[in-house]
C-alpha cells in the first residue's frame, strides 16, 4: 500500500528517469551493435587476430563496473557523454564474442556449398552466414542489454542520469523510499529488455532452423 502511494506521488520524475535510462541503454547497445557486429565478422576473416582480440575482450569484462566508471570519471569527467562512452565499450564485448562464434560455427558444408555454387563472398555472408548466426548474435545483444541496464544504474555515480540517480541518492542519504523508487523500476526495465529481445530472437530466427533446436 505504502509502495503504491510512493510510486503514484513520484510518477512524473520517475517516468522521465525511465526514459533517460532506456535512452542510455538503447544508444550504447545500438553503438555496440554497429561496432561489434562488423568487427566480429572481420575477426572470422582474419583468423590470426581473433584469439588475441577475444582474449582482450574477455579480460576487459573482468574489470568491475565501478572501476571502469572510476576511470571514465577521472579521464573524461562527469556527465552523460563519459557514461555513454563507458557503457558502449561494455556493450561491445558480448556482441563481439557471439558474432564471432556464431559465424565461425556455421558448418563448413554450408559455406562450401555456397561458394561452390557461385556466391560472391558478400552473398555467402548475407545469404548464408548471417541468417544462420542470427540467433547467437541476438542473444549476445540480449546479454549486452541486460548488463547495460545494470551498469547504467551504476553510471548514475558519474552523472549519467536515469534510475541510478534515485538509488545513489537513496544510498547516500539512507532514504529507503528513493532506493525503492530506483531499484524496482530498474529491475523491471532489465526484465523488459531481456524479454523483448528474446521475443525478437524468436521472430528473426530463420524458420527452417526452428524445429532443429
Amino acid at each position: 500500500m505504502k509502495l503504491i502511494t510512493l510510486f503514484s506521488s513520484n510518477w512524473h520524475p520517475l517516468l522521465s528517469s525511465v526514459g533517460t535510462h532506456s535512452m542510455l541503454v538503447i544508444i550504447s547497445v545500438g553503438l555496440g551493435i554497429i561496432i561489434a557486429v562488423p568487427l566480429g565478422i572481420l575477426l572470422t576473416r582474419k583468423s590470426g587476430a581473433a584469439p588475441i582480440v577475444l582474449a582482450a575482450a574477455s579480460m576487459v569484462q573482468t574489470i568491475p563496473g565501478l572501476v571502469m566508471l572510476g576511470f571514465a570519471l577521472v579521464l573524461l569527467g562527469i556527465g552523460r557523454k563519459p557514461a555513454l562512452a563507458t557503457l558502449t565499450v561494455y556493450s561491445i564485448l558480448p556482441i563481439l564474442q557471439n558474432t564471432y562464434t556464431g559465424i565461425s560455427e556455421v558448418p563448413f558444408a554450408y559455406t562450401d556449398a555456397a561458394k561452390g555454387i557461385g556466391m560472391t563472398p558478400m552473398q555467402v555472408l548475407f545469404k548464408v552466414e548471417l541468417p544462420l548466426a542470427v540467433a547467437p548474435i541476438i542473444s549476445g545483444i540480449r546479454t549486452s542489454a541486460v548488463y547495460i541496464v545494470s551498469w547504467a544504474t551504476l553510471a548514475g555515480m558519474i552523472g549519467a542520469g536515469g534510475l541510478g540517480d534515485w538509488i545513489w541518492t537513496g544510498l547516500a542519504t539512507y532514504n529507503t523510499d528513493y532506493i525503492l523508487l530506483g531499484a524496482i523500476p530498474s529491475a523491471l526495465l532489465a526484465l523488459l529488455f531481456s524479454a523483448s529481445i528474446a521475443l525478437l530472437e524468436r521472430l528473426l530466427k530463420p524458420r527452417g532452423l526452428r524445429r532443429m533446436s
Binding site: G156, T176, A190, L191
Partner: peptide
Amino acid sequence: EIVQTIPSLALLALLMI
C-alpha cells in the same frame, strides 16, 4: 534468471533495506 537480470546496484540496495 530473473535474479541475475536485476541490476546489481538495485539488488544490493534492496537487500540493504
